[in-house]
Design a protein around this nucleic acid. Structure first.
Lengths: 256, 256
DNA sequence: GCAGCTTTTCAACAGTTGTTGAATTAGAAG
DNA sequence: CTTCTAATTCAACAACTGTTGAAAAGCTGC
């Protein structure tokens, strides 16, 4: 795990805000909050979460610069200053949104890969199984019924496709997991060159990114035949599609 | 061809700006400029073009809201007011940047498709040939040596992946061309359902979008083994990859 | 060199932005 | 009830935003 972000460290003038205090005292507030329960003390934390929820949705739709703190506060029915109090700078809020769900998501995908690894014998899982483990956990938006997941994944798509944000935020957050999957694919596709493997992953990542962005373009293009928010249909088509692509590029078909 | 954008039609208060005049008088300025040559009168048009060039690059990297008119003017070594004079509102400048190269690009890709259609017999071109015609013209950035093309394509990627802009700008600009290619693919893949065809196109479009975005992510992920700005390598891998995916989803392999 | 344009700059505007210090509220602990 | 602390709001700031009207500069045709 990488160290927490150093953004705006040297500032923290007087440590009067919660964000400032957190840098110094770890998770003092959050811990106290969890202990306090939820009867009426919990509403404070509820406002904090509402800020994250609204920021998540707005950042995903309009990008970092397309959203103002006042829009977020307004959506969360909260004063503007509260966002600064809880998270510090706008950039820190952005990072907080991005990091909030990343650990859970990474673990879900990691476990999915572990599962197909265990189910497969010594030969290891096939290409389809690996790709399925890579994609299916992303349906947790539909499974959990939490709309926030849909917004979060759209935010990841925004970041991954952005030259500016992609470079700074994707690697430290997802490289470990991605390399796990590429390692598995290297085993499933013996003889494949790393160059070919990475280009194939690039293709899959791009298709996935556009899916997660949920732009509604395929809806318009297909006259409503397809729906960009139907992740299940998307993955149903993506898994065999990508598997065939990997096999075509990365060598001969062993073990159908 | 769709009608020109109606954005900010009803405004145009007094028509004192060039942008206002253009709405009324068509391309009065531009036409006069082309006639005037380039010795010294051409420098006026040169500033206009520089604004478009810088806007193109900055919009592609930071998005619409991530760029200010002053940044654009500064990059073009021009006063802020000049952008408004030439293009009107910021949104009109954004549209002008997006539309500047679209006709040329669409025709290049259309002709590439026509060419493989003529070269193929009555059976029509194969999947690989169609996809190649779809992708290769996008290398014109390298061919022409005009860096602007690279920025423009990154801008298209930004727009295509954006829930907000994608819906408004992609369809009217690219649907005609895309449907041409899908029609060709429908012939090359007899028996394929439209649903499958559109999902396959969605996959290809996503991979292409991430390629055009040129985020440098694959460079970091592969430790420099692959370069995201190497479009030729990207298409070399994409064409067979996508062709295999289309065939896997859209039915049996006829005519290898 | 002067009149008539187009192009370009200057200067300023009203509105919005992120941020912060002080004041207010609420809940817990004593 | 009092005290303490965390959560929340209020009010205000300086900086920046897109936009525009007026002035200046450039160029063309006379």
């Amino acid at each position: 795990m990488p160290a927490p972000t150093k953004a705006s460290d040297a500032k923290a003038k007087k440590g009067s805000t919660a964000a400032g205090k957190r840098k110094a005292a770890g998770k003092s507030k959050a811990a106290a909050k969890r202990k306090a329960g939820n009867s009426k003390a919990g509403r404070g934390s509820a406002k904090r979460d509402r800020i994250l929820d609204v920021a998540e949705q707005l950042f995903a739709e309009h990008g970092y610069d397309g959203v103002t703190l006042r829009q977020i506060a307004s959506g969360a029915k909260v004063d503007v200053a509260l966002a600064s109090y809880h998270f510090g700078k706008k950039l820190d809020l952005f990072n907080a949104v991005f990091e909030r769900r990343s650990a859970y998501l990474n673990q879900a995908r990691h476990e999915a890969l572990q599962k197909v690894r265990e189910e497969a014998g010594a030969a290891g899982p096939g290409v389809e199984q690996i790709i399925e483990a890579f994609l299916r956990p992303l349906e947790l938006a539909q499974e959990t019924g939490d709309e926030g997941w849909r917004h979060y994944l759209a935010l990841v798509a925004y970041i991954n496709n952005s030259p500016y944000w992609g470079r700074r935020m994707m690697s430290k957050m997802f490289d470990n997991l991605v390399n796990e999957f590429i390692d598995a694919l290297r085993v499933a596709l013996p003889g494949a060159s790393d160059t070919d493997l990475y280009w194939c992953y690039h293709n899959m990542s791009g298709a996935l990114t556009l899916t997660l962005a949920d732009t509604g373009r395929i809806d318009a293009l297909s006259n409503g035949l397809c729906s960009s928010s139907d992740f299940e249909a998307a993955y149903d088509h993506m898994i065999p599609f990508m598997a065939a692509g990997f096999r075509r590029i990365c060598g001969v078909d062993f073990a159908a």
